[in-house]
Nucleic acid binder design. Structure first.
Length: 807
DNA sequence: GAGTTTGAAACT
DNA sequence: CAGTTTCAAACTC
């Protein structure tokens, strides 16, 4: 059947028919000639579009694609597909690669609409597909292009994922598979699809619309999607797109009708994307199917992300409305995209604010520090590339991925990527406009996609929880500089109670203009945002100059003023409920508290607020800090610091701490797993760099904490494992010999202290992180270095200065 | 929501 | 460096 038709298709042009070459080609494979011609026209340009940075992506993508495709095909009973086969196309071999089939169908139909009378009747759709599908498909098809392709694909996938397709993906897949089976029974998906299309012109139309719309939407939203999903979605994209297309073609009339309905509902193609992204607005069955399929392919990963995204959406009031209402206008779309960013942001956590504020490289550093924190936060790592520009990001990501891959920290890597992508966009919302570097973004996604599988397994709940918390802050950033003080205290309190604001707090400054450390936002290096209740606020991007100037002044007085108050070197084992939970177990307050009446049992106490135990640095009276009183600990800490036995064994320390532990009052959350770790960290808690008075008793703090994290990383243990106190201990047990290196490699970068503290402050590690520069090893000391969260006029100077001082 | 308490930040 | 003031968050009612 196919062969003759294909031949015809291939020979639309009478001229060629006569040519011997043409005949020869036909003899080899009818489709091939046509394809070649088409591909030549379509692919090249598309492929060019793909960014160069695909180095990483391509391999990963391919592998993933194959695996997923194979999965999807498994329904069809085809274990694998190879590109070569497709190209060769025994016409039917194409079936193996759904992509190819789609491409062929499109190309054939498009280029020679008249020709492919037999198989491909969906010419009209093909035309649209030409422009759009080919892009995605072609990219997918091409090795390098993964970047571009994934991007589109990701979006599509994302959409479905986000949508949280009501129908179980599996079911959907089955349905589709059944339909497909018919076609496949005939042998080729493509053929089957074509047949279906023939039978159902309407479906074809829908398909066209869907595809075109989807592509448009994807393109337009690429920025958004990229942020969130780049990594994750990327994987699904391939399979998802393919499956999507095939599904569309094969869709039963019912589905087609649904699609039509959706289309009619959403005349604006752009809206579709949003809908696709969000479950409520699901545009069409086809999309749903796609999502379903994708989900089937990448169930856990996507689902996880979807969950997160959903949560974020829910959290974000505005976002919710926009999303759920569906896209009614282009502007709304943008908003949605922004919201999405915000959501993504949420993922990133409080850090996002800083990142936004930091056009400078500081953001990069921060991300790195986060990475160290790897325990809970996976995401930030990739941000480095960053100055916010996706393009720049890509390279960094690539490196990061590579490093991770090498290190075999797949889990972390994946997560980081995802977040990173999102952050990037978020970070540079304004600049982001450019999502121009979609390709770049896509790349990261691709990379991330490679690891997504790992992510699923490894991603702990913590991430999600954190994300949720962060959400509150994100919106402002995503929007960029839009700040509203409109939020009533009620709202704020409400949010706080909900725990949303815990991660990052909003200020309500009245006299300080938010340009003093009184202002929590300012102190955290963040711009005030909508939820803030501040008056006469100057801590806004609009007043960037003032902010920077003031910041400078403050830093001149105290270089560490903007450094996180709480320094945690280790993997934090965030716990649920309290913001303190976010604080790393080994975290310590940099400067220590000076409580007199609160007994360090109330949030007046910064140590308590941060969920960390008091340390030697504290001057508190009658300390009863449930996280760890300074009284008992102090001497021990001092001894330890002096001896620098930090490395000896965290266990010993932990035991001491346990003995000394006063944590009776503490909530169970802290008590169990975290408590020990925190205690462990405690002895070393003192900040090496405290400017105030008690300088360096310890490098120990950094060492100890870093040790934990580092060791864990080196061991390649997954984050969740690291989180496990037991594992930590085991890791800590590791001999000293290893520790130094560990610290050097991972720890230092990550080691950047990250504080889950309400302020969301974090110390950024040295820029070199990625580079395995030895300097990085010095990281311990560098950890405390304060990195301007705001875009500092002269960030480099500061950074350079600080290290010198510290060291 | 207003008022009080508290402790950090800023100032002298 | 110590003491005081200012400030805003945390807390209480």
């Amino acid at each position: 059947m196919d062969t003759p038709e294909k031949n015809q298709i291939g020979t639309p042009i009478s001229e060629f028919e006569d040519s011997p070459v043409f005949n020869y080609i036909n003899s080899l494979s009818p489709i091939k000639p046509v394809k070649a011609a088409n591909t030549a026209q379509i692919f090249p340009p598309l492929s060019f579009a793909s960014p160069p940075s695909s180095v990483f992506t391509s391999p990963h993508i391919n592998s993933q694609r194959e695996s997923r495709v194979s999965r999807r095909l498994s329904d069809i009973s085809r274990p694998e597909f190879s590109h070569s086969e497709n190209e060769d196309n025994t016409s039917e071999g194409v079936s193996d690669a759904v992509q190819l089939s789609d491409l062929f169908a499109e190309q054939l139909g498009c280029h020679s609409p008249g020709r492919s009378s037999g198989e491909i009747t969906s010419e009209p759709p093909c035309q649209n597909l030409k422009s759009e599908l080919p892009k995605t498909l072609s990219y997918d098809y091409s090795s390098l292009d993964g970047d571009m392709v994934p991007y589109n694909v990701v979006k599509t996938n994302n959409v479905p994922e986000m949508a949280g397709t009501p129908a179980s993906p599996i079911q959907f897949v089955q349905d589709v598979s059944e339909e497909r089976h018919h076609s496949f029974e005939s042998e080729i998906e493509l053929r089957g699809i074509c047949r279906i299309e023939q039978n159902k012109e309407t479906a074809g139309c829908d398909w066209e619309n869907l595809i075109s719309n989807a592509t448009d939407l994807l393109i337009s939203d690429s920025s958004i999607n990229n942020e969130h999903y780049e990594g994750q979605d990327y994987e699904t994209v391939d399979a998802g797109v393919i499956s999507f297309i095939s599904a569309v073609l094969q869709l039963p009339q019912d589905d087609a009708n649904d699609l039509k309905k959706t289309e009619s509902d959403d005349p604006v193609g752009s809206c579709k994307l949003d809908k696709m992204e969000e479950p409520v607005t699901q545009p069409g069955v086809g999309e749903l199917k796609v999502t379903d399929q994708a989900s089937a392919i990448l169930p856990s990963t996507l689902l996880d992300k979807l969950v997160v995204s959903d949560l974020g959406v829910e959290v974000d009031d505005k976002g919710e409305k926009c999303i759920r209402s569906g896209c009614k206008s282009g502007s709304q779309q943008q908003q949605r995209s922004i919201r999405r960013r915000c959501l993504v942001f949420d993922m990133a956590g409080a850090h996002k604010k800083k990142l936004l504020g930091d056009p400078s490289g500081s953001s990069m550093i921060k991300s790195q520090s986060d990475r160290k924190d790897a325990s809970n936060e996976k995401q930030l790592v990739l941000i480095k590339p960053g100055n916010g520009y996706s393009s720049s990001i890509l390279p960094g990501i690539g490196l990061h991925l590579n490093a991770l891959a090498t290190t075999s920290k797949d889990c972390k890597v994946v997560q980081h990527q995802t977040l990173a992508s999102g952050r990037q966009l978020i970070m540079m919302p304004s600049s982001v406009s450019s999502f121009s570097s979609l390709t770049s973004d896509q790349k990261p996604s691709d990379k991330s996609s490679t690891l997504t599988s790992l992510e699923r397994d490894l991603v702990p709940h913590d991430n999600e929880t954190q994300v949720m918390e962060d959400v509150s802050q994100t919106p402002a950033f995503g929007v960029g500089e839009e700040f509203n003080h409109s939020c009533p205290k009620r709202k704020r309190r409400r949010l706080e109670h909900n725990g949303e604001s815990e991660g990052c707090k909003r200020c309500s400054c009245k006299k300080s203009k938010c340009l003093k450390l009184y202002c929590e936002c300012f102190a955290a290096g963040l711009y005030c945002i909508e939820p803030c209740l501040c008056q006469d606020c100057f801590n806004k991007p609009i007043h960037e100059d003032k902010v920077l100037e003031t910041r400078k002044q403050i830093e001149s007085r105290n270089p560490l003023a903007f450094a996180p108050k709480v320094i945690s070197s280790t993997n934090s084992v965030p716990e649920f409920g309290d913001e303190s939970n976010n604080t790393p177990a080994s975290a310590r307050h940099k400067r220590g508290c000076n409580c007199k009446k609160s007994n360090c049992l109330k949030k007046y106490c910064e140590c308590f607020q941060a969920g960390v135990g008091c340390s030697i640095n504290c001057r508190c009276k009658e300390c009863r800090n449930s996280f760890g009183g300074k009284d008992g600990v102090e001497e021990a800490d001092i001894e330890r610091n002096e001896t620098e036995a930090c490395e000896t064994s965290a266990l010993d320390i932990s035991f001491r701490n346990n003995e000394k532990d006063k944590c009776e009052e503490e909530s169970p959350d802290h008590v169990t797993p975290i408590t020990p770790s925190s205690k462990i960290g405690r002895p070393s808690v003192q900040l090496p760099f405290t400017f105030s008075g008690k300088p360096t008793r310890s490098s120990s703090f950094a060492v100890g904490s870093s040790l934990q994290s580092c060791t864990s990383q080196k061991l390649e243990t997954s984050d969740f494992l690291c989180r496990q106190p037991k594992f930590r201990k085991l890791l800590q047990m590791i001999p000293e010999d290893e520790t130094p290196e560990i610290l050097v490699d991972d720890c230092s970068p990550v080691g950047g202290v990250k504080s889950a503290s309400p302020n969301c402050k974090r110390v950024s590690p040295p820029h070199h992180r990625f580079g395995s520069s030895p300097a990085w090893r010095r990281g311990r000391k560098l950890i405390l270095r304060s990195i301007p969260s705001f875009p500092s006029p002269n960030p480099p100077n500061k950074s350079s200065d600080l290290p010198g001082k510290l060291q």
